[in-house]
Amino acid sequence: MLPGIPLFPEQASTLAPEVDNLYFFITAVTAFFALLVVVLVVVFAIKYRDKTGEKVGHPIHGSLPLEIGWSIIPFLVAMVIFVWATVVFFHIVRAPDQALEVYSTGKQWMWRFQHIDGQSEINELHVPVGRPVKITFTSEDVLHSLYFPAFRVKADAIPGRYSSLWFTATKTGEYHLFCAEYCGTAHSGMVGKVVVMEPDDYQAWLSGGGGLSLAARGEQLFQQLGCVGCHLGDGSGRGPSLAGKYGTEETLATGATVAIDDIYIRESILTPQMKLTAGYGPLMPTFQGLVTEEGVMSLIEYIKSLSSTAGPAAPTQASAPAPPPAASDNTGGPGE
């Protein structure tokens, strides 16, 4: 059973109508110019046709006013499109403050989504309707691109960097999720669906998953990797205290200051010597290869969760062995 020819994708986010209105406007403008030229070419070709090839044309060599006119008018039209499109673009790239955060990693050939509350899912993403959702993601291998056509948003996943995109879904239902950047053999299999749910259903879904929250998992990792031995909560350790640091600024050994955000924390875990905090020696080893991208994300979430008063717990020696880092594959989402 073939459906009719679809002409237009579903609008399922607050951004979608903005993008579509721009699309209609540009379509109208370009259709006007295209028709103008095509009609003129056809009319001239027929009206001035000479079957013999013997005649010659009128000696017309140009017209400065015309040249200026058809340079300036298209330019002005283009500028209208430019301004409009740029405004829409900044709406797309600037996530609202109170967005629901989801972490994601792409790898050949699947998307893994990690909710703050602990659920993780593969090639499927459950989100509530009517609430901004911000996805922060990276790649573990090659370039990928996270693409939600129904929401009109997309961004590349780049190894070694964090990208993000956001949307507020406006309609419940299931929509496509694609990898848009070519990533090798099963590129076209790196697809899935995003499930937009009523807030109540979403809460039910969330609580049905079980497993530790992302921050709790980060805390486990923090202990297990031995971070806690140096980064004492009161600042007396060999490393700086991390309590209440997220979102503030840090002075580096070089005298420069750096904003403490996801990217800086990631760098500090993987290449700790690159940007040393003032007053601390280059003692921290690199954790490259010891912690996965998801592990890093959980650590970031843990550090975020530390308020300035409650520092990380003291090292609990000889405690029961913690679960392996980011061994979260057993906490697959309940969406199956």
Binding site: V19, L22, W84, F89, H91, I92, R152, A155
Partner: peptide, 10 residues
């Protein structure tokens, strides 16, 4: 057009 290219790219 930036806002549109996000959707159309690739």
């Amino acid at each position: 057009a930036l806002g549109l290219d996000v959707h159309l790219h690739d």
